[in-house]
Amino acid sequence: MSELLVIIQIAGRRCALSAHDVKSVIEIGVVTPVPRTPDFIAGITALRSQTLTVIDCRRAIGLDAAQAPTDERAVVIAQGGHSYALLVDAIEDITTANGEPGQVPGGFGPDWSRIATGMIETASGPALLIDLPALIAGPDTVRGEIEAAA
């Protein structure tokens, strides 16, 4: 069974989300910041009567903040009974997976390895399959520092 994937770009890398996890793609409106939360949480925003937690994916991976502008659209996912909007560089395409996710020799680097299930071949080329719970958990070390600073 070839799985449907949503291809996105985070920090210029091609990443893939299982289309099953993606609820919708929205135009991101006003984001209300949430004080005293880790910086990867951009804030909350409303989708109809729902509240979405907006995650800045670059920061959630532990990368430097935006060098490139993010897409005006965000990917809405549901995880653990809560809905999140993922801020990404770009939302590219929907495609099908060819085969199972695998590892590459040498790994993806510690930041990426933490949030990736593995590399997956798709109809439009290879992409990094994102592990959503790990992504949403945010970079622990960075968060610890922020809390210590606060």
């Binding site: 939360t37 949480i41 729902q50």
Partner: peptide, 17 residues
Amino acid sequence: VKPLAPAVMKPGLYAGS
């Protein structure tokens, strides 16, 4: 009142949105 995601609840300042 709507529930918040765990990461937002974590600082202990918010009860919901």
